Computed example of a mutant assay.
Amino acid sequence: MKRILIVDDSELMCEVIRGALRGLEEDNVIFVATNPLIAIRKANLFKIDLALIDYEMPYMNGILLIDYLKDINPLTKILMVSAYTEPGAQITLEALNRGAIDYILKPANKDEFNEFKKDLLEKVKGIIFQKDYAFVNIKRTTTSEKSEKKVFPVTCGIDNNRSHLINKLKESKVIAIGISTGGPPVLEKIFTSLNKDFSIPILVVQHMPPTFTKALAERLSKVAQRQVKEAEDREKIENGVIYIAKGGTHLAVEKILGKYYVRLLDNIEKVNNHKPSCDILFSSVAEWYGENATGIIMTGMGSDGANGLFEMKKQGALTIAQSKESCVVFGMPRVAIEKGAAEVVLSVEEIIDLLNRV
């Protein structure tokens, strides 16, 4: 039995969320708090396993409430109920950086309630029954820590294949990353830790809606102090630039007269229930870059990316899966590993160390 806390000042949203949670496969205790002060009191009285939090509330916002709930019980999982707006995207990214494990978009109208409840139920089931969730505690990085050079110890994952992996990475003309749940803090950690002269272009598919990917690119560019941008159709892929796939559009590449370009594919439906899809990116990189590429599949629920990463491996590219211990959700890397698509399995720190050896 799990204790779930709903925190929202809208009685209608509380009832919609409660309705979705009735679909859970076992009995759970569900608490409702119509403001953060009530939520804090309930969290002090009961061990809360999962809290579903709105942002705009009386007395304090959802970001501050995350801090309070984590101080009361660091094991409490946080799911943000986010607005589908630009400010909502910025807030959600901050919530993920502060310790929220995932988010779900609020329904814009009553017609979207059923789809919202279905998606919410799937996320909550995954979290409370720990299906592929590892619940890694991603340490928040302070400003002073970001300014310091990060040096990570090399562990056996790299030591056993050091020369081989480094040589294959050095031959890469591009790095493709597929990532989902738990991704933004991991991407922030990687990009802030890269050597300043790191020049291999990076293409990233992070499962997010359109407004969120633009906000993500802006945030990563600011904190990493390097060029991170939302990808644009037909732009030339330049060294040293990190391209984030636009939400709602597949990201691919093509080669014209010896140069590589970004392609955004609007006319292709969702793949593995995602748009952008990691499979589309990996398959495209396999086709146009062949062995001169590196593919990395990271934290996320589901199976997106496994097939495309396998195509990259068959073409001779270096393929990496994030280790279970360092994932928030091990689903995507797990499927890729089971399929034989990953040449090596590394932690986030090992991935950073490898990238910085180029």
Rank of each mutant, 00 (worst) to 15 (best):
I190N: 13
D71R: 14
I38V: 15
L355V: 01
T211F: 08
F129P: 00
N267Q: 11
K149Y: 04
L187V: 03
P201N: 01
G19Q: 09
S199K: 14
D49K: 07
F135K: 01
G62E: 05
L93D: 03
T76V: 15
S82T: 11
L265E: 07
V32L: 00
Q206F: 03
S326T: 12
K246L: 15
V358D: 04
A252N: 04
R226P: 07
I128F: 00
L346F: 01
M312L: 13
T142W: 10
L354S: 03
P153C: 05
K255F: 02
V151K: 14
F113M: 03
L169C: 08
A43P: 04
F212H: 03
V29F: 12
M1Y: 09
I91P: 07
V335W: 05
E343G: 14
I320R: 08
E26T: 14
L5S: 02
N137L: 10
G240E: 09
Y59C: 09
P276D: 06
N97V: 02
E145W: 06
S193N: 11
K110G: 01
D266W: 04
T294L: 11
L281I: 07
E235P: 01
N273E: 12
A215M: 07
A215S: 15
A83Q: 14
K150L: 09
D67P: 00
R334F: 08
L257C: 13
K123T: 05
K339A: 12
A245D: 08
L203A: 11
D279C: 03
T141Q: 15
N109F: 00
K275W: 01
G302S: 12
V345E: 07
K314D: 06
L309H: 06
L105E: 03
S163V: 15
G300L: 08
T143Q: 13
K229V: 14
D67A: 13
E349L: 00
G23E: 13
N307D: 13
A100K: 08
M208P: 02
Q90T: 04
I101P: 01
E188R: 12
K125F: 00
K123M: 10
L251F: 04
E269V: 04
V29C: 13
K77W: 04
V151P: 05
L24D: 05
A134G: 02
D8F: 07
N307P: 00
E11Y: 10
Y261F: 15
V81Q: 03
P185R: 06
K131V: 05
A224F: 06
K196S: 11
K106Y: 06
D54R: 09
V32F: 00
T192K: 12
L52W: 06
V81E: 04
E287N: 12
L24V: 05
S144E: 15
E171L: 11
T34W: 01
V186H: 06
K173Y: 12
I40C: 08
A51N: 04
T213M: 10
L355R: 02
G157L: 00
T85P: 09
E218G: 09
A43E: 05
A33P: 02
T249M: 14
I320S: 06
L257S: 14
E232N: 07
A286L: 05
D197H: 06
N161C: 11
L169N: 05
S323Y: 00
V241E: 11
S283P: 01
L75I: 03
G248F: 11
D71V: 01
V228F: 08
L64T: 13
P276T: 10
I38L: 11
I190T: 08
E230F: 05
E11T: 10
A252R: 03
D304Y: 14
